[in-house]
Design a protein around this nucleic acid. Structure first.
Length: 141
DNA sequence: GCCAACGTTGGC
DNA sequence: GCCAACGTTGGC
């Protein structure tokens, strides 16, 4: 069975002081836990194995720094003591040659409509294939 | 069901 | 460190 569903693209945020891309690389994979926002949780649940995910550093030098991939779809978040929350597993694919900063994204008209800009507090969000490719291209220039 | 108070996120 | 944006909680 192949191509029964189209893959999707996503963006996840993380403060590098809490969990950085460098740590992610060192770990080789990570459980994406701790999401406590319904919209973000629903986005986690919509992820499929093989989906591509932009890894964004927030707060400190805000920028997209790498590309990850979903290796396991949503399951109950083991860090949640109450409530109905989900986690997934991500593995790193590749770092961008240089980060694509929030300022650069804002300065690109085709990217300025992203949820990243419009909903600045959302930590897990869908990204269109075009947006995804534009950011990867900018980052690998 | 409304809305004020509060806590958190994240840019600057 | 400040503050705007926004999600959540709780009183009424």
């Amino acid at each position: 069975m192949k191509k029964s569903t189209l893959s999707s693209c996503w963006l996840v945020k993380q403060e590098p002081t809490a969990y950085s891309w460098a740590t992610f690389i060192k770990d080789g994979k990570t459980e994406w836990t701790g999401v406590r926002n319904f919209q973000a949780r629903n986005n986690l649940r919509a992820m499929k194995k093989g989906d591509q995910v932009l890894f964004y550093h927030s707060v400190v030098n805000p920028s997209v720094v790498g590309v990850a991939e979903v290796t396991q779809t949503a399951y109950p978040d083991p860090t949640a003591t109450e409530g109905d929350w989900s986690a997934i597993i991500l593995k790193p694919c590749h770092a961008l040659k240089h980060p694509v900063t929030l300022a650069a994204i804002k300065a690109t008209p085709a990217l300025a409509e992203m949820a990243l800009i419009k909903q600045s507090r959302l930590s897990v969000m869908p990204v269109t294939e075009k947006e995804f490719e534009m950011i990867v291209q900018q980052g690998n220039h």
